[in-house]
């Protein structure tokens, strides 16, 4: 395992990238991005088995699909700092002629992205399809996917959840970002999701809960535990309890920063809470 301090430095720098990217264009989704920072950093820098470089097919390596595409800032930052594209390019986020579209896409050829996402509820189906291709190719690598909790209100997810269990797609780990918030307010006020663990289990998934999704050690432990449960006839689900806006105190525990950019003062405040580690882009 990489030193925890090293990973924590990436987490902190990623948080800086997120708020700076969103501030730069006064547009984007910082809340969910900040909440999933530990998870995405851990995946790319500790958990996934990745090849050098990028090709679309991704044979012989683990794959990741971001279904809740609006948290693109965290993914872009992690991809750039992992070397998929120049860190400097983060400066083009959501700007005209950029490869870093508001929501991730393959259309502009950004390395690291394998399908467009953002119109919610589609990513799990795509991830399962990629997992099926791995089985056909006798590639024993895994497919990871991340989904918002509010996103589970989209019915296509439940088609996919039913399919994966019914067909024993046991080389996928789908994580639900259970931050309990969506655009219009708390998920349980907008449309209650109820007990997700029970729901996934009823559909035939192996479910594990990670209580502190903003604790790097807990996230890595949870992901490794999930990995150990693959290949046993059931798809694996992680319900990851995170705090939307984590790491920036005034953005935490509220849906207010789901899709809102900080102003200059707020940016300064946010950055003061996350000291530069790897160097700003």
């Amino acid at each position: 395992m990489a030193e925890l301090d090293t990973l924590q430095d990436i987490v902190t720098q990623t948080r800086r990238d997120i708020v700076r990217m969103v501030h730069n264009v006064n547009s984007g989704h910082p809340g969910g991005s900040l909440g999933c920072t530990e998870f995405v950093v851990a995946l790319y820098n500790e958990v996934m088995d990745l090849k050098e470089g990028f090709d679309m097919d991704g044979n012989g390596e683990d794959l990741f699909f971001l279904s809740n595409g609006h948290i693109s800032p965290v993914w872009y930052s992690v991809l750039a700092r992992k070397g998929y594209f120049p860190v400097k390019e983060l400066n083009t986020f959501r700007a005209l002629n950029s490869r870093l579209q508001g929501h991730p896409t393959t259309h502009e050829g950004l390395p690291g992205i394998r399908v467009a996402s953002g119109s919610l509820g589609q990513g799990m189906s795509v991830a399962i399809g990629a997992a099926l291709a791995k089985k056909l190719n006798e590639d024993d690598h895994l497919v990871y996917s991340l989904h918002g909790d509010g996103e589970l209100q989209e019915g296509q997810n439940w088609e996919a959840i039913m399919y994966a269990a019914g067909n024993k797609v046991d080389n996928i780990i789908s994580t639900i970002d259970r931050n309990g918030q969506q655009i219009d307010g708390p998920t349980e006020d907008v449309l209650p999701l109820g007990n997700l663990k029970v729901k996934f289990e009823a559909f035939g998934w192996d479910v594990l809960e990670v209580q502190d999704g903003n604790n790097l050690e807990a996230v890595i432990k949870g992901l490794n535990e999930a990995k150990s449960r693959t290949g046993k006839g059931k798809p694996v689900c992680i319900i990851l309890d995170t705090v939307m806006g984590h790491g920036v105190d005034f953005m935490m525990h509220t849906h207010a920063w789901h899709g809102k950019a900080p102003n200059d003062e707020q940016l300064a405040d946010a950055l003061s809470q996350n000291a530069e580690t790897l160097g700003d882009y």
Binding site: G58, L63, V115, A133, N137
Partner: peptide, 16 residues
Amino acid sequence: AEANMMGLAAGLTIGG
């Protein structure tokens, strides 16, 4: 479940 079918199809292309 046609929505899922289209997503599965898209995913299956990844891997050739």
